[in-house]
């Protein structure tokens, strides 16, 4: 008996360290692919490894990266949020419209964020408290917020004139040569990653996503956790919206179209699972970088932009298939 026990122990040890290695490889592998891609791109195009190209690419991915932090949390909770792009647009448009209407830009910014929180509360209420599924709820919110943005602007972009320098600096300025928007993204990503590993609240999110029944039977208030998760996602989307507004000085109702799919792909490529309980901010950020590099590369190599979606789609499918194979192997093992 003792011997049998020992044996099973040994095999399970081997399995787990195998899996742990795979987990490590998951992010390491992604990092490797990114480095490889960078080498290939620098060889293929003299314009790739230039300060201006790298800066542009980083600025381009900053808002996706910020939202990806929130999306990862949503995925870890076992849900996802399709309304991120629309909330981005609505927060920018609200801020822009209020500013044009004569409000102080910072107050307008706060109200833009308040609107985002409102969207998140609605999502969270329907998903967490009523129990409507995230797909339906956030799909509705995606249309509601986008619709509201169009209504507010009557469909055409609002140009902001003479916005204070301090505000335009958020999206367009630099500190020590690094764009402020990129710095904000880095700060949010670092905080997000730390919270993901250490925050007691985010730990509850992991429990809920891993097994919501067991979570509620461990005394965790599952609906409250879900409610808060969608507020976090919405706030981050709102911040991205403000930054977009600041960067272009135009409040565009169609801003952030397609963000949700891009960001979800990135988070999933980075190891988050649609079934919940898994995912890291670090992985999601790597996913965002990978997708951005692919697009950058295609542009530099003069490949038609129409290839972008096609290739991003293939990468996502490949990443998810890999994940699925790992999961089934783990389950049947």
């Amino acid at each position: 008996m003792a011997q049998i026990n020992n044996e099973t122990n040994l095999t399970s040890t081997a399995k787990s360290s195998f899996w742990q290695r795979m987990m490590a490889i998951r992010e390491m592998g992604l990092l490797l692919i990114i480095i490889l891609l960078m080498i290939v791109l620098s060889l293929a195009s003299p314009h790739f490894f230039t300060a201006s190209n790298i800066t542009t690419t980083l600025i381009g991915l900053a808002t996706d990266g910020i939202i990806a932090v929130g999306m990862t949390i949503a995925l870890v909770s076992g849900g996802f949020d399709l309304s991120v792009g629309s909330v981005l647009a609505l927060s920018g448009v609200t801020t822009g419209a209020l500013y044009i209407g004569g409000m102080n830009i910072w107050l307008a910014t706060v109200l833009g964020l308040v609107i985002s929180v409102g969207c998140g509360m609605v999502n969270g209420y329907f998903i967490g408290k009523i129990g409507i599924n995230p797909m339906i709820t956030t799909l509705s919110m995606m249309n509601i917020a986008r619709g509201a943005a169009y209504v507010l602007t009557e469909g055409s972009p609002l140009s902001l004139a003479q916005t204070p320098k301090a505000f335009t600096n958020l999206g367009g300025g630099t500190v020590l040569g690094i764009p402020v928007i990129v710095l904000i993204f880095i700060v949010i990503a670092v905080i997000g990653d730390y919270m993901m590993r250490h925050s007691a609240f985010i730990r509850q999110v992991f429990y809920v996503g891993s097994n919501s029944k067991a979570a509620s039977l461990s005394g965790i208030n599952v609906s409250k956790v879900k409610f808060l998760v969608f507020i976090i996602v919405a706030v981050l989307s709102g911040i991205a919206g403000i930054l977009t507004l600041s960067r272009f000085n135009v409040a565009t109702p169609s801003a952030g179209l397609g963000t949700e799919m891009r960001v979800m792909s990135a988070a999933i490529i980075g190891g988050a699972s649609l079934s919940g309980g898994e995912g890291t901010v670090f992985g999601a950020v790597l996913g965002v970088i990978l997708l951005a590099l692919v697009n950058d590369g295609l542009v530099l190599l003069d490949v038609s932009v129409y290839w972008q979606d096609l290739i991003s789609g293939i990468i996502l499918l490949a990443a998810v298939t890999l994940d699925y194979i790992n999961h089934t192997r783990r389950r049947t093992a």
């Binding site: 992991f206 429990y207 891993s210 097994n211 029944k213 067991a214 039977l217 309980g277």
Partner: peptide, 13 residues
């Protein structure tokens, strides 16, 4: 399995 444990999470968690 259904209601008690978080199967994909670590023992400590």
């Amino acid at each position: 399995k259904e209601q008690g444990l978080f199967l994909n999470l670590e023992v400590k968690k």
